[in-house]
Design a binder for these strands. Sequence first.
DNA 1: GGTAGACCTGGACGC
DNA 2: GCGTCCAGGTCTACC
Length: 290
Amino acid sequence: MLLTLAARQPFFYPAVISSHGWPQLAPFEWQEGVEKLGYVMELSNGRVVRLEFTPAEGGLHVSAADSLNPAEQEETQNAARWMFALDLNLEPFYVIARQEPKLAHAAAGAYGRVLRSATLFEDVVKTILTTNTQWGGTKRMARGLVEAFGAVHPADPSRRAFPTAARLADLDEAALTDGVRLGYRAPYVLELARRVTRGELNLEVLKQSDLPTAELRKVLLGIKGIGGYAAAHVLLILGRYETLPIDSWGYKLVSREFYGGEPVTLAQIEAVFERFGDYRALAYWFWKWG
DNA sequence: GGTAGACCTGGACGC
DNA sequence: GCGTCCAGGTCTACC
């Protein structure tokens, strides 16, 4: 199966790939040199497919070795549109970016789309895995979850999808601490999976939510393990850019760039980016540091 | 509302 | 090989 999906212009495939570290997290599989992003996805009917994303003229190619029926094709297509934010209109951001030398590259190179996973559940879990650990730890934990609990691709048992909330909800905590070594994050992931499975928290509706960003942020902060940084990161994924996802590295960058290396507070960082209004998180995320 | 300490892991380092 | 220290956000208890 090969689909060609048109993107709202401007669209630049490498800009999405390099938007953050997600291509390095299972079940993504980035193939350097051939510009190919693999992804194993469990469809709503339980079927596991392996997709490959490559750049196309004006958009994105989505290919699968598996043959898909029309409903499966539609689900795959919708997932790809979401993951690459093909319909996102970033022109208001580019208008701002063109006026700031440190952001001009973003407008010229169509930066601003942030790669997403197929489900918001997967992205929230991965965001929890980025907290209070180094990047190597995040990769290890994501890989561990996929290898231990992801649904197997039938034609290639070495490849698995990201585990669904329902699959994780059935586990006991020891499976996540002793098995995947999530550490103290294990109860957070477990509680999130159980809330989603019980229907107490519907993350997927947040993708299209009309809630004001402040309300959306409250919902995210209600998830154990999601604090200020993580909520802002999930909001960035959702296309809400009013809050800044500042981690400890971000403090260092802003300190060096704007405050002569002196220690800075979050309020000082927010003051720097306030002038970018509703697009301040994109301005921070794609700022040309140094 | 602000702050201190605990949480857990892997890596770096010294012995 | 072993022990110690540190980095990395969030939670909870406390003020």
